[in-house]
Amino acid sequence: MRRSTHGGRHELGQNFLTHTPTIRRVTDLAAATRGPILELGAGDGALTGPLAGLGRPLTAIDIDEHRVARLRRALPGVAVQRADALTVALDRPVIVGNVPFHLTTPILRRLLTAGSWNEAVLLTQWEVARKRCGVGGSTMLTAQTSPWFVFSLHGRVPAGSFRPRPSVDGGIIRISRRVEPLVPKTQRAHYERFVRAMFTGRGGSLDRVVANATRADRGRARRAMADHGIDPRALPRDLTPRQWAALWRRLGE
């Protein structure tokens, strides 16, 4: 395989999936969705072939022109395009991809702020997958986007499942766009600032953090927390998406 004009595997962050059970798992998750599929980072086609077998319209992109040419020859029924996951239009209902580990965060940020897709099945770094799905508590990014998206974790993928072997394990996540958002989309920028203020605020206790972030008095903050089942000993990372949305409606707006 000739070297791409964008660099070799190291520069492109390419770790090709070779683990058959993981390929099957990702394909099964994609099969449970509906509509045309966009695959990000097709690489050697480990996922492209099984996804094509679902019998649905499939567009596969990769930045490596040589792999694009090879996939076009191998899978003539698939629309294989040379494109960048950071700029391609996210205009298919379903997004699937073995995401380059070094681009996991920017690709996720783009997915969560752009496009008209409904479901995404992604293979990412394990630590990113775990955090995005709220294992051990949610991150600020997850809390900021949870009124519009649902995150679920579908397994850990050992580093030995990739070629070349990365230094960390992978994780499979599914992201679903909520049919009925918990916060109006028009309020997204304000809501994100509210969450940031909560995560970065000081106070020593959650009611103080809430009061400082919303400029409410502590008594009102305590009542809002109690009404929505929020433990006063909790931290912002412990709140559920519905608790976040409830606090926003009660105090943040």
Rank of each mutant, 00 (worst) to 15 (best):
I95R: 07
G204S: 04
G137Y: 00
C133R: 05
E65Y: 01
H10W: 13
P147R: 08
A85K: 03
V96E: 03
G49K: 09
G55L: 04
G219A: 10
A120D: 05
V68P: 11
M225F: 05
V210L: 13
I230H: 01
D227H: 04
T214D: 07
G171Q: 03
C133K: 01
D231F: 09
L122N: 09
R110V: 09
V78M: 05
S146D: 15
T240S: 14
V209Q: 11
S176A: 14
Q14D: 06
A120H: 12
L247G: 09
I175C: 04
A79F: 06
A74F: 00
E39Y: 07
G115P: 11
K131M: 11
R67K: 15
T87R: 15
A83H: 10
V88E: 10
V96Y: 01
I172G: 01
D84T: 08
V157Y: 08
T214C: 12
P166Y: 10
M225T: 07
H102A: 11
A69P: 02
A60W: 03
G219F: 02
P181E: 00
G160A: 13
G41Y: 04
T145R: 10
T27S: 15
E127P: 15
T5R: 14
G136Y: 00
G43V: 06
P181F: 00
G155M: 01
F194E: 08
V26W: 02
I37Y: 05
Y191M: 07
P236H: 02
G252F: 02
D62S: 08
R163N: 08
D91W: 10
R109E: 15
G137F: 00
R222N: 07
G13H: 11
A189H: 06
L235S: 13
V68C: 09
V80T: 12
D28K: 13
R249T: 05
V94S: 03
G8A: 09
R156F: 03
G41S: 05
R222T: 12
M1S: 14
I63V: 15
T139P: 00
A159H: 05
Q144D: 06
A213V: 04
I230V: 12
V26T: 06
V96L: 04
T240E: 06
T20A: 14
V96M: 06
R34A: 15
R249I: 03
G53Y: 03
G49R: 11
T240H: 01
V68D: 05
R193K: 12
P21F: 03
W244C: 03
G7I: 10
P166H: 05
L47C: 02
F16Y: 13
L103D: 07
D169Y: 09
G8H: 06
T200R: 14
I173W: 02
A114D: 14
R177N: 08
L29H: 13
A224Q: 07
L47A: 01
E127H: 11
L47F: 02
Q81P: 00
E11M: 14
I63N: 02
G45A: 03
I230M: 01
I173R: 07
R202Q: 12
I61V: 15
Q243Y: 09
D28N: 12
M140K: 15
A42F: 07
T200S: 13
L247M: 12
W244Y: 12
A69H: 02
